[in-house]
């Protein structure tokens, strides 16, 4: 590949749209070419912004699994360079591809296979229950979001982030989405409230998030007819009344 060719790969490289060999060649190239190195940093930063629109609530189990996994995972020390040797990376990537099937076959062939299978079976059962619950919620969510009288309101959270309340009076419910940039401490939790009458306020508990949880999307029944929807930060078990309000959405 000529040098002219390789400069031209900068966009495709930033989008991960090159093959392993081109990736390795380009990474070797930017060690020597400051122009491409500066440009690729900017274009990669730009490409990452495309992820802004891909927000999706991960399954709660993922948090448990990841936090357990890091407890078992040794960290790398600071290095000269974050980039592995280009050739090594390409080789590893190719190796991984060719051996993935072989590795799976190995596991099944050994005694560990039975244990692995049992664990997976259990996961499948747990998943089926979760899937059934998710399907019910999905049907309800779609009914609310598809309601002809849907009104969507949103407000910023103190400390960054946003609460969105999509309400349908016909469905007598709302879909509430909360995404805080600042997670509460692990012994604190966000609590949701409805307030019928601002003139004579008596906040009613509308749900409690898991401790330390920064984002959630859930159905809250009976929101329409209230004047305010509020979010507060409370001790992990929740409070009878809001003590530290972090967001309010006016509903009228």
């Amino acid at each position: 590949m000529t040098t002219t060719d390789i400069h031209a790969l900068v966009g495709a490289y930033a989008l991960d749209a090159v093959d392993d060999l081109e990736r390795a060649a380009f990474e070797r190239h930017i060690l020597a070419c400051d122009g491409c190195r500066g440009e690729v940093d900017e274009l990669r930063e730009t490409a990452s912004r495309l992820a802004d629109s891909t927000w999706s609530v991960p399954p709660p189990q993922l948090r448990t699994d990841v936090l357990a996994a890091i407890g078992r995972t040794r960290q790398l020390p600071p290095g000269e360079s974050a980039r592995p040797e280009p050739d090594a990376r390409a080789a590893v990537s190719r190796w991984r591809r060719y051996t993935a099937g072989a590795a799976a076959a190995c596991i099944l062939a050994t005694g560990a296979g039975a244990a692995t299978w049992a664990v997976q079976e259990q996961r499948v059962r747990a998943k089926n229950t979760a899937v059934a619950a998710a399907e019910l919620r999905e049907a309800r969510t779609q009914a609310i979001l598809a309601a002809p009288d849907l009104v969507v309101r949103t407000a910023p959270m103190i400390g960054g982030g946003r609460v969105t309340v999509a309400s349908s009076a016909q469905q007598a419910a709302s879909v509430v989405s909360l995404r805080a940039e600042r997670a509460p401490a692990t012994d604190r939790a966000f609590q949701l409230w409805t307030i019928r009458d601002v003139a004579a306020p008596a906040p009613v508990d509308a749900g409690l998030l898991a401790p330390g949880e920064a984002s959630a999307a859930q159905i809250v029944e009976g929101v329409p007819g209230n004047e305010v929807f509020a979010v507060s930060e409370e001790p992990a078990g929740g409070s009878p009344q809001p003590t530290q309000v972090v967001a309010q959405v006016l509903l009228t």
């Binding site: 309101r153 600042r182 601002v198 306020p201 972090v246 309010q248």
Partner: peptide, 26 residues
């Protein structure tokens, strides 16, 4: 859809701290 939530804040919910709670989260 507007950001009206921040504009009119009922008095009884004024237990809002000036500084955001918790440690920095940059």
């Amino acid at each position: 859809m507007t950001e009206r939530g921040a504009a009119r804040r009922p008095d009884h919910l004024s237990a809002v701290p000036d500084a955001p709670p918790g440690p920095a989260t940059d």
